[in-house]
Design a protein around this nucleic acid. Sequence first.
DNA 1: CTGTTAGCGCGTTCAT
DNA 2: ATGAACGCGCTAACAG
Lengths: 345, 345
Amino acid sequence: MSKHTIQDVARRARVGVGTVSRVLNNHPSVRKSTRDKVLAAIEDLGYAPNPHARRIAGGRSYTVSVMLPMVSVEFYVRLVNAIEECLDENRFDMAIFPLLGRARIERYLNSNRIAYQADGIIMCTYDLGKLFPDGALPTEHPVVLVDNESDHYDSVFLDNYYGGYLVGEYAGRLGLPAYSMTLEDDPEGVFVSQVFVDRKRGFDDGIASSNVRFVRDYPCGLHHQGGVQAAQQLLDEAVFPCTVFAAADVLAGSLMEEAGRRGLVVGRDIKVIGFDDQPWSQDMKLTTVHQPIEVMGRRAAEMLLERLSGYEGPPRKARFTPHLVERDSTLGEVLPAKYVAIAER
Amino acid sequence: MSKHTIQDVARRARVGVGTVSRVLNNHPSVRKSTRDKVLAAIEDLGYAPNPHARRIAGGRSYTVSVMLPMVSVEFYVRLVNAIEECLDENRFDMAIFPLLGRARIERYLNSNRIAYQADGIIMCTYDLGKLFPDGALPTEHPVVLVDNESDHYDSVFLDNYYGGYLVGEYAGRLGLPAYSMTLEDDPEGVFVSQVFVDRKRGFDDGIASSNVRFVRDYPCGLHHQGGVQAAQQLLDEAVFPCTVFAAADVLAGSLMEEAGRRGLVVGRDIKVIGFDDQPWSQDMKLTTVHQPIEVMGRRAAEMLLERLSGYEGPPRKARFTPHLVERDSTLGEVLPAKYVAIAER
DNA sequence: CTGTTAGCGCGTTCAT
DNA sequence: ATGAACGCGCTAACAG
């Protein structure tokens, strides 16, 4: 926090505080020469306006809160970076509020929380209807939802059903017995993401029109270890060759690793299809559903900034359409069953 | 954000704003009867003071920032929960700022960031000397360091060297060839935690006084997958029976899992010692070094609150001493080498 | 003990 | 185009 005030800047630039304020807020009616004087003074002093004072006086602090389940999951890291980049370009600051678990979520039901003192909020993934009374956040400020569809707020989300459908269709064409790995139920019941339900529903529908037999689903935790455990059980029970839809790339990665450990050849003995198209999926040659995370994050930030600039229209939905990226993990030639049986052991 | 102001409360309670302010700030000289009147009015109106206004007027917003590398690592989740609990009891709010990576850290070199507008900061793990100019955060507010020792700020940390030493001594008594798994260097060079260096140094020194042979160290990423990879290489190369010091419980978990997969008996063929004593370590019967994470988090919050209450003494160090918890993972009877060689295959 | 008043730093009039 | 004055919601100092 700079120790200077707008007064100091005004004195140094030999102008009134009003003029400095205008420069600060990009007000058009300032002569170029005086604007430059002011900017120079600001630069010299290393001055930065006090966001709290701005909030008090002008009703805005140029800060937005981002609420999400947790970070350090690849999806959120990418999303947050994209959001922050966009906000940064518009001279907005960002604070992250990881909700982590039920206890913290309940704290955030209280509108006094600092999180709600921002100019606006971006809420990720959580189903507001299940967490907050009336399905609304306790705030008058604009809210944008990401990774979750809504009729009450602007929302940015992927058509996860369609993504799953693409995979189902594709699995149908592969013609092999099919399995799936999806997200298990959250014991705390807070992180019930519609996302994975939709992907699975789409997959089921996509495969239904083929004559492929869907054997069963293996629910697992959304991390490497969870994927490995489910993969072990799956590989113990599965018949080969087969197709497996892993509803997140991280799970597909676990599965491919575990399959390799057992001497199975991915693409031939087991066809693996992921979801996300994370950067490393290309290296792993994983067939997967592409989702434009950065674009979605940026769009969410833009929508919020539009609201903050006074846009008053009805809630908007930014639905993104995924597409399938075909890679080696589904491209190997399938061998006669007998040979596979040997390779399997 | 409540739409009421301190004026509304004053009117409703038929007192002056000064009195309301005194009640809000626990000022002693308020008659009990009027205090109750005011509290009733506050209750009726659902009033909550505006933190920005408090900051402007009184210089404090009752908010602290917590900066850390990332959450959703068990250590930080537990730490953050403990910190928030203590702050909550003192009517302070908390905002978390995950630094995530180099790009975000550099943004946070700028003192204008909202993170620095809090009354105080708790900084976790990062070595300030390497990240910030002069080894100081760009703020005049009080700072407390956690998981990192410092001469400039109050700091709360574990004696990691001693913890490692305990393990080294213990491994010496076990009398078996010893290996270790520690944190690999961070490619971005930002998350170079002294913590793991200290644990390893202590381990080396602790084992040095015995006649046990230390074979080699396996560096790995601080997550399950990283542990599995290192464990595979270690188990490929190791001689059994042996002792392995995993410098974090999560790595020990990976190792035990991988060892089990290979038919090795933990505690007999391979003695595993972890570090952290995470809640699940007891279930896994992992011998490990206990670290009181919640106590440390609470202590950090307390130290910061003391500074915010005006304490002005020199930087204090709250060093915590770990202890070894012995469980089954090191307790099996070692068999003759020949038998082990068979079991190994 | 309590009411009144002067700022805190800034945005926003309203004249000029 | 620009300076001066007012007010945002609150705390703190000053009277009583």
